[in-house]
Nucleic acid binder design. Structure first.
Lengths: 140, 140
DNA sequence: CTAATTGCAAAAGCTTTGCAGCGCA
DNA sequence: TGCGCTGCAAAGCTTTTGCAATTAG
């Protein structure tokens, strides 16, 4: 169990934190909302409050353990931070999230920003559309 | 006054709608939150409710008159839709919003998405950082 | 032991909505 | 005149927070 990252963040290794980390590690869906994490905990019959889920996820974010993304549907999603940066493709039909990373786009956006006298700190690049499965499935 | 666009959207030309459109057209700040639009109306001593501001902005969005953007600070901002597409640079220090559009980025992101079997419907590309004014101002 | 952490529930934003009255066409 | 629109206030949702009880180290 990778409770090490929790310690390294200067946080006590408590049951809620260990469970939430484990969920993020083991879920097949890599981008989870706080509510989804909470539901999984409830299904596991863990007695952990939604407030705690938010608190822990926010702490993990500060510690650089997870990333928070604001997709368009009003709630944030969290994913374990990976070694390499990437952006997202979100299927408007099934909600699936794909990841992409393109050197050219990354480099060019930085260049454009700098040309405008802008110092880049971060960016959010989300492409909305339909994934191949949904295209195949229907005409909608 | 460009009330024509309101009619063309199949909406009655009412005082709230005309005022809100005018505010969006005339404000020097081009990206306004519902609350900001509401404040301007209050300052103008217009008797228009915040609920109406939201309703009108949402209608304008459906009609393609304005675009809604979700920046990271929890509230949406609206801007008049322009002829040409563009993305945004947001200064984390002063909140200023700059616009950019780069052919190369646009083309490449579409290409990347298609390589992944994705049909692009829309995208949100926001760069967060510090604008030149804030860089000049301080060391923060 | 003692400070950090949690569950619970209340509260805080932002945004939407129901309804009775008002106003545009 | 009639239906659409509005103001108001209440409700909805996601997320945050206060506090007493609990727990990790």
């Amino acid at each position: 169990m990778e409770t090490t990252v929790i310690k390294e963040a200067g946080l006590k290794v408590t049951r809620p934190r260990a469970m939430i980390l484990e969920i993020l590690e083991q879920s097949e869906k890599k981008h989870l909302s706080a509510e989804e994490v909470f539901q999984i905990l409830v299904d596991d019959e863990e007695d952990i409050g939604l407030g705690t889920v938010y608190r822990v996820l926010t702490q993990f974010e500060s510690a650089g353990i997870v990333e928070r993304h604001n997709f368009e549907d009003g709630h944030a999603v969290f994913e374990l931070r990976q070694a390499s940066h990437h952006d997202h493709l979100v299927c408007l039909e099934c909600g699936q999230v794909l990841e992409f990373c393109d050197e050219l786009v990354e480099k060019r956006q930085k260049q454009v920003a700098e040309e405008m006298g802008f110092e880049v700190v971060d960016h959010s690049h989300i492409i909305y559309g339909r994934c191949s499965a949904c295209i195949a499935k229907g005409t909608a």
